[in-house]
Design a protein around this nucleic acid. Structure first.
Lengths: 120, 120
DNA sequence: AACAACATTAGAGTATAGTCTATACTTGTA
DNA sequence: TACAAGTATAGACTATACTCTAATGTTGTT
């Protein structure tokens, strides 16, 4: 598929997709048989990758962290123990984030209660 | 206390503290009695606020969201029902974040398992 | 008095993550 | 064939959140 369809399927603008391409997060392929243009062609894996990018971004991972994660996910240049290590690191960082969020939630909930009581 | 002590107490650089001051997140007071300088003086509440900023930032709130939160926390120009609404909104957004993190964690854990099994 | 340490402001610079514009070429449809 | 729609690239622009520098003045210590 071309960039426009990829954009429609993922909800990510063509501009941003090109930005991710330039950043090395995704890779379109050029069709050697077609000489009249040099349009990038994308496969379903790229759709998956863009979805992963969206998800990972929404939980606060930077693009460079997401890049590492996708190395482990899709790339075989990295050894299995290295993959496992990387994934464990990400799991730890997610646990940290969850811990912080829970603390913050408790803090806000307590404060909300005190505000409501003040109200009476 | 002056900016240097505030910085030492919070672990936030004086540069960043001044940036927060300019952004309206904290407010130092000038001592009217002292005419020779116009140094900002900070109280313990500012220490608290800076700690809140650090915490809220670590869980992915933007400075402008943190500003709103601190309006509710410290400011009485906002009515109690408004405060409660704002706090509820932040609680919801934290729950959303936690939900996303848990989904991501599950995904990564499953992938890690499959990588490890592949290893045998 | 000398001098280090600290304070202020203005403004420049950096990193991240886009977002948009201009230019130019290609493709598909009326 | 005209022309709208799609594609590529380079580069400018934006927003957020700092981070640093320069210029200048103040305070505290020897």
């Amino acid at each position: 598929m071309l960039i426009n369809e990829l954009s429609k399927r993922t909800g990510i603008t063509a501009h941003t997709i090109r930005f991710y391409e330039k950043s090395g997060l995704i890779k379109g392929k050029r069709d050697e048989r077609i000489k009249s243009n040099n349009y990038f062609h994308y496969d379903d894996e790229t759709v998956e990758k863009l979805e992963l990018i969206s998800d990972a971004k929404s939980i606060g991972f930077t693009l460079s962290e997401i890049g590492q994660l996708m190395e482990a996910w899709y790339n075989n240049k990295i050894t299995i123990p290295e993959k496992v290590l990387l994934l464990e690191e990400k799991l730890r960082s997610i646990d940290e984030k969850i811990k912080h969020l829970k603390e913050m939630k408790k803090m806000i909930a307590e404060f909300k209660k005190s505000v409501e009581e003040e109200n009476c």
